[in-house]
Write a protein that binds this DNA or RNA. Structure first.
Lengths: 192, 192
DNA sequence: CGAGTCGTTGAACGGAATCAATCGTCGTGG
DNA sequence: CCACGACGATTGATTCCGTTCAACGACTCG
């Protein structure tokens, strides 16, 4: 989400969920917006035929269901993908807070615009067919000073860029033998 | 963008560009935000090594560079991908207008939240490896009452979901013989 | 009229997914 | 405390299918 809400005196609840636990259900009335403090939460949309589609995975440090701030019902399920801790904020209170604090609104717009930028970039990176090129494009876009630190697992990273985990490991190994990258503990260093 | 700005009395300029023309340059000071009225605009990021990466393609009816509302410099090039018409709004005026109109700010937040929802969904759809499944997931997510109307070309659609155009044509043909869809002029009908 | 784009189909190749197996670690419960 | 399961990391072998190159007709636009 964004920092203003945390610094406000809005009531917030922290709750723990186990793998598979539902945080909210598709179709239910929107009460809260959420923030993942640890773990991983999947947003899953169920369509009429009963097929389900993962529409987003929120990791620690990310908010989810913010898009529901303006709708009455959740348009997807929120499911803990592993043991997770989640902070919830009351939707109405958040909206009221925003209306009374234009500066916070601007900050939120800024945050949302940033998210859109990131998502568009990720989306285009996913259009790169070659696994090696896709990985390099992702690393270059994420790296600061040629270093890419990741907090989640490489398996999560693989899913994030739309690759099978095996492919990611293989290509990372290839890239390392090619002296393009150096794998370290919890980070990847880009050469050149 | 969103409707409030058009209904406002903000000054706007309409300009035509030919294929390859630069609308703005990476690193230049942000003057305007834009809206595509016809054609197609690519946002291209150039990195240090001179590699370039398409970070977004904006089609008719879409805005672009809104993320630059809060930054001083464009972080990418804006290039017309074919003959295009573009409306521009002065960044400062837009910001001032927003600050003076909280309701419009809320509307903008709503619009941005919707974009985020759409982008996340598209991003997950792109993670589906099977071309047929990916196409069906996309059609089902976009269709209203089992009808999907498209204004852009199928070639553009192919790129949007990260497929080669040939693959899209082939799989659409397959899906039609399987009685899953019916191709019509400018629209695709989903069966069942 | 010619260039360019869209729509369409064919053939061949390469590479990503998939199935499978192993190893280490961590947490949990008996 | 140890056995067990779950999960992350890693490598091997195989299959399949999406990309790519190529070619062609239709159409628009300048």
């Amino acid at each position: 989400m964004f920092i203003d809400i945390f610094n406000s005196n809005l009531k917030s609840d922290s709750e723990k969920f186990g793998k598979g636990d539902k945080i909210f259900t598709q179709g239910a009335t929107v009460e809260n917006v959420y923030f993942v403090t640890s773990g991983r939460v999947k947003l899953i949309r169920e369509n009429l035929e009963g097929n389900s589609l993962v529409i987003h995975v929120a990791y620690a440090g990310e908010s989810f269901a913010e898009a529901s701030l303006f709708s009455n019902q959740y348009h997807c399920h929120g499911v803990a993908d592993c043991a997770s801790e989640v902070v919830s904020f009351n939707k109405k209170q958040v909206l009221t807070f925003l209306q009374e604090n234009p500066a916070s609104m601007m900050a939120l717009i800024n945050a949302l615009a940033g998210q859109i930028r990131d998502l568009r970039l990720l989306s285009e990176i996913k259009s790169i067919y070659s696994a090696k090129d896709r990985i390099m494009a992702f690393l270059q876009s994420e790296a600061k000073e040629n270093m890419f630190y990741y907090t989640y697992s490489l398996t999560d990273l693989a899913h994030k860029i739309g690759l099978a985990q095996e492919t990611l490991y293989r290509k990372l190994a290839t890239l390392e033998t090619e002296n393009k990258i150096i794998k370290q503990d919890g980070c990847i260093k880009l050469i050149n």
